[in-house]
């Protein structure tokens, strides 16, 4: 489902990712681990099709991104639930509008009734049920992060890419988020989660990949923490 072959990424001559290769099958759950500046966010941006690699190739859902048409790239993006590190909510939209936009962006003019139910369920689960009509700019960092997760999950993606989604969460919220990710994974959704939280990795044992200075130095099925 996901395949990276010798992927390199440079910014202004500085190599951030170096010869990174790995494969991930449908329905797998992968922790992406590594220190600050290791290249986790860059790798996730490449997978979310936001950035192009400087060299190497990436395949998603059987399509090589280098040769994919605009329409294919659009379809791939519609199948991804992306939680960026910097959240990127639309500040003058309400929580509900931010989440709904991720569904209508796929081409629907109006939100189907079942999507409303699903959004409400996710918001309730993430403790945002009472805040659905609040503007995004009035939310705390943790709340905004949870809305970004809700936005990614609400569109029923085939692949979830989450960049430090628990970074600003308390324990309770962290496990609510993890519960949703795991439920999605059980239902067949592939999950790639970048995290610093060793407790999550220790308690929810899944496949791990470690990035160090832009290189994927270790990839094991067992947890490395």
């Amino acid at each position: 489902m996901i395949s990276l072959k010798s992927v390199c990424k440079e910014f202004q001559g500085q190599r951030v990712l170096d010869q990174t290769s790995f494969e991930l099958n449908r329905g797998e759950f992968l922790y992406l681990l590594g220190g600050t500046g290791a290249g986790k966010s860059t790798l996730l941006r490449l997978l979310a099709t936001e950035e192009q690699p400087s060299s190497g190739s990436i395949s998603l859902f059987g399509y090589t991104l280098d040769t994919a048409s605009k329409a294919t790239l659009q379809a791939i993006r519609q199948s991804i639930g992306y939680v960026p590190q910097e959240v990127r909510l639309i500040s003058d939209f309400t929580v509900l509008e931010n989440v709904a936009l991720s569904i209508t962006t796929g081409g629907r003019r109006a939100l189907p009734a079942q999507a409303h139910v699903r959004i409400n369920e996710i918001l309730e689960k993430l403790g945002l049920g009472t805040k659905r009509d609040r503007l995004a700019r009035t939310l705390s960092g943790g709340e905004a992060q949870r809305v970004a997760v809700a936005r990614a999950l609400a569109r029923n993606p085939e692949l979830i890419i989450a960049d430090e989604p628990t970074g600003a969460q308390d324990k309770e919220s962290t496990w609510s988020l993890m519960d949703l990710f795991l439920k999605a994974n059980i239902s067949g959704v592939t999950v790639i989660l970048a995290t610093h939280d060793s407790e999550i990795v220790r308690r929810v044992r899944k496949r791990c990949a470690l990035l160090k200075n832009g290189r994927m130095t270790l990839e094991e099925l067992a947890c490395i923490y």
């Binding site: 993006r77 199948s79 991804i80």
Partner: peptide
């Protein structure tokens, strides 16, 4: 910012 994120989510 909103438009570029919409494109990233697969908006045409």
């Amino acid at each position: 910012d909103a438009v570029s994120f919409m494109e990233l989510m697969g908006g045409g």
